[in-house]
Design a protein around this nucleic acid. Structure first.
Lengths: 220, 220
DNA sequence: TCAATTTTTACGGAAAACCGTAAATCCCAA
DNA sequence: TTGGGATTTACGGTTTTCCGTAAAAATTGA
């Protein structure tokens, strides 16, 4: 049963809402912090005193300010928290709407639920918490539909090339980079071929169009 | 004295927080809606029954869903609302952080205050409401500093070119498009020159890098 | 092991982008 | 109207990308 919850959220207004939602479903042990570093300290202390948290509700993006932080975003907070307390349940509550990003959280960070800040998000939060309470994951419907229609799955290789292009590297330089880092294939022709293939899948005609799409959907 | 307030905000969680904040400062006449169209109807009806709102608190961006709306964003809502009730006070509450956008709201829409969704936004909301109550504007400090450091302001012309590139058009085709639409300069050289200038300002080396940046910051 | 297949690389011509310069055009004021 | 200055366009050479083909290398299967 989920009793003790930690809210990591820099927006005061959002934090207040989550607190209110938790209070409504009868959870009276809710702490909240505005910085990732503070969240980690709380988790650490709670573990040491044998009163660890059952659930972490966290945002993804935290704004930088005068207080310099070790952990700057929700993703890294999750990884650090799980290193301390592997069985900690994690529910991400963010405005992020790109399915690739959310999918990565489930795949790579093994989160237990995702609720998008949108219409009816408070009610959705309740549903998600109840579901996690029953040891189930909460994966929002909106993303399940969107997932399959993206015909092309970007490989690590693809993302490396595209990242380098975003950094302003020429294809020749990318070839050299791949060779130096023992990533194959590294030939200029292979890079050209791969880019042509991806563009073909999407029906794009220029690199500029491909880059725009990748940035939009959050591949880089 | 501000008594009757309307909250136009699609995020349920954000709306809840604003309601709670209003309740705390002793404002018990707060209505809330999730769609711009609903907001306008409320304002209309209130005016007709001689019980008009004192303040409109609205978000900027409203997500589209199954319910098709006439008014799709906060900016247009403000304009429409002021057409009905010119003396309506308006406080914008949004995550938008680009100073250019916020400045425009004060300049073109004559809003009374802006509070950014961020750390301490609930407290800032209170301050803003009190200030508006005293017939003063609330302009957040964070923007006053940032205004000058914007290295490059994208013109309509720039955005046209970049949009066409994002659509996969070659520079030659862009030149033809500009000529056909009587946009000057339309010469290929002028397009090249402009792109080089922008890249130079940012210290970029390739078009791909420029496109990535533009998509990221939301120029297109 | 060796031939067949696939993957990767090399190469070369064509198209596009890049970059400087010069010519043409536009615009404004005298 | 006209001359000067700024803007826009045209042009040519260079680099980069594009795209097809073929050689080289790696992988596979019997």
């Amino acid at each position: 049963m989920i009793k003790k919850v930690l809210i990591a959220e820099d927006h005061e207004s959002a934090s207040i809402s989550v607190q209110k939602t938790l209070a409504e479903i009868g959870c009276d042990q809710a702490d909240y912090v505005y910085y990732c570093d503070d969240a980690l300290i709380r988790i650490e202390k709670a573990c040491q005193s044998n009163s660890s948290y059952d659930l972490l509700i966290t945002d993804l993006y935290f704004e930088e300010d005068h207080r310099k932080q070790q952990i700057s975003n929700g993703r890294n907070l999750i990884i650090a928290a799980r290193a301390i307390q592997p069985d900690l349940k994690v529910l991400v509550f963010s405005a992020e709407g790109r399915s690739v990003v959310v999918e990565k959280l489930f795949g790579e960070c093994d989160i237990d639920g995702y609720v998008r800040k949108a219409r009816g998000d408070a009610k959705e939060l309740m549903k998600a918490i109840h579901q996690i309470d029953n040891n189930q994951r909460y994966f929002p419907i909106q993303f399940t539909q969107e997932l399959k229609q993206n015909n092309h799955e970007f490989t690590e290789y693809d993302m490396t090339i595209i990242s380098l292009m975003v950094q302003g590297k020429r294809q020749k330089e990318i070839s050299e980079y791949l060779r130096d880092n023992n990533i194959t294939p590294s030939g200029l022709s292979s890079i050209e071929k791969r880019l042509n293939y991806i563009k073909d899948v999407f029906g794009f005609s220029t690199n500029e169009q491909l880059i725009a799409h990748c940035v939009k959907i959050g591949v880089v």
